[in-house]
Amino acid sequence: MIREFALADFGYLLLATRWTILLALTAMLGGGFLGLVVAICRVLPIRPLNWLTVGYINLIQGTPLLGQLFVFFFGLPLFGLSVDAWTAAALAMSIYASAFFGEIWRGSLQSVPLRQWEAGASLGLTYRQRLAYVIIPQAVRISIPPTVGFIVQLVKNTSLAALIGFIELTRASQIMAAATFAPLQVYLAAAGIYFVICFGLSHVSQLLERRLHVAR
């Protein structure tokens, strides 16, 4: 079993990368949907709902993702659900992402200046029209850099799923490192793959930012 780290092994890492990407995408979509709900619950003028949401956000943001992964991985079976590492990771990371997306989007919504609401109102736009055509388009633009920034965190954090045994890039590297006895090369290669994905994402965000017209 012991051999050199070769091109074929790098291929194996790349193959495992699709699970990293898939997990990140799942967390993005699941967390994105839940995050919208979180953002809305946070701004609706219903006090108890706001407090509940703030509690949820603080709980998720105040505890380590690894702990959340473990709680889901070991906890869900207690409710009679037989979950594999993939399901636990996808669930935990979606919940994790929802707290961050929710806060990012609420902040973006609230950072559109009040006078933009007034400008819309003074043209006779209804509340919904102001929201749909004036406020949300601006909030979306404002939210792009922090949203992409968090997606980068999400991609990196998928590595923690390795610790509950989900075979993505990091877990694959551990297996590969054990097989080849070339841990340095293997982990550097893995780092390289993560870097390409994350740096690429940040770069896209910067390009977008420059091309969108956002209030200053």
Partner: peptide, 23 residues
């Protein structure tokens, strides 16, 4: 800064703990 910020802490940890002994 860019290298560290764009790679997972866990992998950085593995490089230091499992990788550096190679050197």
């Amino acid at each position: 800064v860019e290298l560290i910020r764009n790679t997972p802490l866990l992998v950085q940890l593995f490089i230091v703990f499992f990788g550096l002994p190679t050197l």
